[in-house]
């Protein structure tokens, strides 16, 4: 066993004493992208099943904010670049081996579609909405005819985006914490959970939609918990580097954050509140929703931070 390991003379900023190349922009970007992906998946999926009218909040209201959240996510991605003037190089190549590359292309196609999708539904959400020019109105109305096509495209791209947020990390086996196949599904599920929370915020009081989404949210939280347990078990049953890495959550630097913010506040408490709600006990929906959304953010924050610290 090595008693003393000294790396002398290397003090590269953001690399030493441990990697910190990605500040909060990156987990925030990942979180927003997953949230938007979740929202759009629900909206597109329900549209394709022709259940638009049963789920007005999920299909029509929630997606209105999606393009703006996407915009923020893109902005954060941009802000994180250290060689910004060259960002256009992202779009001179398609690199299938690079999640960031296809992530960037997904953003590129999904963002206009998300705007169109929001535009199509804006009048349902805000009945008093008017477009400044008549021709816009006409144009948007004409697009409505292609709703199904848009829904297919959005569903596909949103799934890609949701997966991208997880695979971006799990593609790096350089960082033991990220080196897990569970992170992809976990982030996708967590995106869907956050989306249910977001949709719940848009549901009218006491609506059937609210009840149903509460159930969906609960199931999603369950799957998410299952995946989280698997993630940690996976670390523990793997090689030394991952066992050491898992220590970051089980007694190390991130223990409190992980157990309190993500497990307790982000998962167990909102799940319990959902159950109470389903048992017809009055719970202001904003509480579990915000908790879930924050939990979703911190999940990514912690995994990005801990992942950078963990090393072979």
């Amino acid at each position: 066993m090595i008693e003393e390991l000294i790396i002398s003379g290397r003090m590269n900023p953001e690399i030493d004493p441990h990697l910190h190349a990605w500040p909060w922009y990156v987990p925030t970007d990942l979180f927003l992208a997953a949230l938007v992906a979740g929202i759009l998946i629900f909206s597109a999926f329900l549209t394709l099943h022709g259940r638009e009218n049963e789920f007005p909040a999920a299909v029509k209201r929630a997606p209105i904010l999606a393009p703006f959240l996407l915009g923020i996510a893109l902005l954060l991605l941009f802000l994180d670049l250290s060689h910004k003037l060259y960002f256009w190089q992202l779009y001179t190549n398609i690199r299938w081996t690079s999640p960031l590359s296809w992530g960037a292309w997904t953003y590129l196609f999904l963002t206009p579609l998300a705007f169109i999708w929001a535009a199509i539904h804006i009048k349902t959400a805000f009945p008093n909405w008017t477009w400044p020019y008549k021709w816009i109105d006409t144009f948007i109305e004409s697009l409505k005819g292609y709703r199904i096509w848009f829904a297919w495209a959005i569903l596909g791209l949103s799934l890609t985006l949701g997966m991208y947020t997880g695979i971006l990390l799990s593609a790096f086996n350089a960082r033991p914490i990220w080196n897990s196949a569970i992170i992809g599904p976990l982030f996708l599920t967590s995106g869907l959970t956050s989306a249910t929370a977001f949709i719940l915020l848009n549901c009218p009081k006491g609506s059937n939609e609210k009840k149903l989404f509460c159930t969906v949210s609960l199931i999603s939280l369950g799957v998410q918990t299952f995946l989280m347990i698997h993630l940690v078990m996976g670390y523990l049953s793997s090689d030394l580097a991952q066992v050491k890495a898992a220590d970051l959550f089980l007694g190390g630097e991130f223990t409190t954050l992980f157990w309190i913010l993500i497990v307790a506040l982000g998962t167990l408490i909102p799940a319990y509140l959902h159950i109470l709600y389903l048992k017809n006990i009055k719970i202001p929906v904003i509480v579990p929703s915000i908790l879930i959304i924050l939990g979703g953010f911190f999940l990514r924050y912690i995994l990005v931070e801990a992942g950078q610290i963990s090393h072979w």
Partner: peptide, 21 residues
């Protein structure tokens, strides 16, 4: 350098911490 956008994905991907901005 003229193609690099500084996304730092490569930095995160290197198990040896061999890269820097």
């Amino acid at each position: 350098p003229d193609q690099c956008i500084g996304c730092k994905a490569c930095i995160a991907s290197c198990p040896y911490d061999a890269r820097f901005v």
